[in-house]
Amino acid sequence: MKKMINHVDNVVREQLEGIAKAHPELQVNLDPFYIRRKIRGKPKVALISGGGSGHEPMHGGYVGYGMLDGACPGEMFTSPTPDQMYECGQQVNSGKGVLFLVKNYTGDVLNFETAVELLHGDGIKVQAALIDDDVAVKDSLYTAGRRGVAATVLAEKILGAATEEGYTLEQCTKLAKRIANRSRSIGIALSACTVPAVGKPGFDLADNEIEFGIGIHGEPGIRRAPFTDSDTVTTEMMAEIFDNAPYQRTVRHWNNDAGEWQEESWTTESLDRGDKVIVLVNSLGGTPLSELYCVFRKVAELLEQQGITIKRNLVGAYCTSLDMQGVSITVLNVDDEMLSLWDRPVNTPALRWGC
């Protein structure tokens, strides 16, 4: 293993120390770990996300105007703890409530739920919204239901704009559900990532193999498949997105009035001819931009054949898996409200326009 690190136990701390020096507009807390906006504007709903480190720039790179108010990084590929989320929520709350945006991994879900209950005990209005966009699996060793992956970036941008526009906590929560219902992602790996504490790749792939449907922590996908070429693999990935039928989602919703969790169920929305979408073609860490554009070229062609219009796009490394060679594709079926919020100004270390 050759990595630009010092001691494996200090990777996240030293990363956060570097972020603090590179971005003095952010407040970086080291005990417990969290990143928040240093300067608060007008009172508004506070948006917080987080998860294991190793997916940078998600989430800390998206703290700033028009996106997150706070981010809670765990150790590498390990959920942050409730005390991180709780203290971060206390710090960014301006009286309008706190919305946690949670990727669907068991540890993340349980710890964010604990933080919700702690903040509620302080008299703070709070809610949690689940992102579960990975169409590769409906259940895994890490999740009950689909995994939450790169659609989280799109949700953070749209919801961040909504909070700046003065949406209430209830309105933001409903919007988050709509984004989750309309998001689909799939990823493939050409090679495994190396977690510093492990010191070697998480799995082995032959030179002519890919892991199809990989998770962002290296979780197994749908199958091991032979590698052919970019167009063939991209077409197979998009087939999974197109073929993904609507399904019943059941998630837990916090009732602030009753002070208890309640289950809600609804059906995801289909992707049909005439729809408008935002597309994210994302590097999992080790895939160069030149190859991502080759993938995007085929994605655009296939969507056009289906009568679906790309209204906006991101191409680059936005939700990584350390140094994994691989790519993910996310398609979000947008309405005019989402598109308008997407275009609103944003100013964060990793995403910036209109400011």
Rank of each mutant, 00 (worst) to 15 (best):
Y247R: 10
Q90I: 03
G52F: 13
V277C: 04
A20C: 06
I210H: 07
F112Q: 00
Q127I: 00
K174F: 02
G41K: 00
A20D: 04
C72L: 13
V295A: 04
T114G: 03
D231P: 01
L159I: 13
L47C: 06
A22W: 10
G199E: 11
Y105G: 06
R252E: 12
S321Y: 01
G218M: 10
V153A: 10
I124K: 02
K103R: 15
F227T: 03
L130C: 00
T232S: 00
D83Q: 11
K21V: 05
Q84I: 11
T168F: 06
R184M: 03
A20E: 03
T143P: 08
S270M: 00
S49L: 11
L154N: 05
D207E: 15
S79P: 08
N6K: 10
I186C: 08
L47E: 08
T250K: 15
G95I: 05
H23C: 01
D69R: 04
C355L: 02
G221P: 09
D83F: 05
A317T: 14
G70A: 11
K3M: 12
Y318W: 08
S185H: 09
W254E: 04
S270E: 01
N255H: 06
A176I: 13
G166S: 01
A22V: 08
M76I: 15
V279P: 07
K311L: 12
G145A: 10
D69I: 09
A192H: 07
V331E: 03
E117G: 11
P220G: 04
L175Y: 11
D133W: 00
S49C: 06
N208W: 03
S265E: 02
I310C: 05
